[in-house]
């Protein structure tokens, strides 16, 4: 009975939303044209003529993500960071050293994976380093590199992390280093403006009409788009080691985990 009630209410809601979105046109005319703000972004994403309005990156999405609406992405990174911290808090006290060696999958898969990993790292770095020029960026590259952490845990075993020397504290340290690099770039304009007595904004990239502060857009005629490349590389570091932490925790055997869960007294 309850099932049908739920079904009926969902069908009703979906129908109402469908009506509102198509017949009332709440989403605007679909498929025809883009909004004015979109045109503003597109026209100014790479526009050397107007330095006060451009992000100097041909990639409109990356320039919105890390420059126009950079604060969103900063806090998005915080959400991802906090999720891992919360997971680490659940697993606090676990030591990764007494993981026993597993046997993993067959030789063919192991060798292929071994060859794949260097290629994959090259691809991921390329995605991160061209984030401001072609589709891609820090998170995309980190997610592409996550395949390494997954395959290490699955194809070899949880013990392979120990063999590679990626223990939990190192992963945490490298990830925090990436995040602090992001924070450094975020705070640099304010600190410099406070030291020199000029105007600058948090997360500022280039000159604005009321601020002369600017990161360099080019190095030797190579476009690096100011802060974007630094954000991308730092985010790449942070995200890829974030995934390492996640899969290191997930691949722990249950016997190892149950040793320490339930030992402390309840509150």
């Amino acid at each position: 009975m309850r099932k049908y009630l739920v079904l009926a209410s969902i069908v009703l809601t979906t129908a109402v939303v469908a009506y509102v979105t198509t017949y009332l046109g709440a989403l605007g005319p679909l498929g025809l044209d883009t909004r004015y703000l979109a045109k503003l972004f597109l026209a100014n994403t790479y526009n050397p003529a107007h330095r006060e309005l451009t992000a100097m990156s041909p990639e409109a999405v990356t320039s919105i993500v890390w420059d126009f609406r950079g604060i969103d992405t900063l806090y998005e990174t915080v959400v991802f960071y906090m999720a891992i911290i919360a997971a680490l808090a659940i697993y606090r006290g676990v030591s990764y050293s007494n993981v026993r060696r597993g046997s993993g999958l067959s030789l063919i898969v192991k060798v292929v994976t071994k060859l794949l990993i260097p290629i994959n790292i090259a691809v991921a770095v390329s995605i991160a380093a061209h984030g401001h020029l072609t589709p891609g960026g820090g998170f995309q590259a980190g997610a592409a590199l996550a395949v390494v952490s997954v395959l290490l845990a699955v194809v070899y075993s949880a013990h392979s992390f120990v063999e590679l020397g990626v223990n939990l504290s190192r992963a945490v340290a490298l990830r925090s280093a990436g995040l602090l690099a992001i924070a450094l770039v975020v705070f640099t304009p304010i600190v410099i403006s406070a030291l020199t007595g000029t105007q600058a904004y948090l997360m500022q990239n280039y000159v604005k009409v009321d601020s002369a502060f600017s990161f360099p857009a080019h190095v030797q005629s190579q476009l690096i788009s100011g802060t974007l490349i630094w954000f991308n590389l730092a985010e790449f570091l942070a995200v890829s080691f974030g995934f390492f932490i996640i899969f290191m925790l997930l691949s722990l055997r249950e016997e190892v985990v149950r040793e320490w869960v339930g030992k402390e007294d309840e509150h």
Partner: peptide, 9 residues
Amino acid sequence: PDIVLVYLP
């Protein structure tokens, strides 16, 4: 393409 690169993994 950006979303594909994030969403896919």
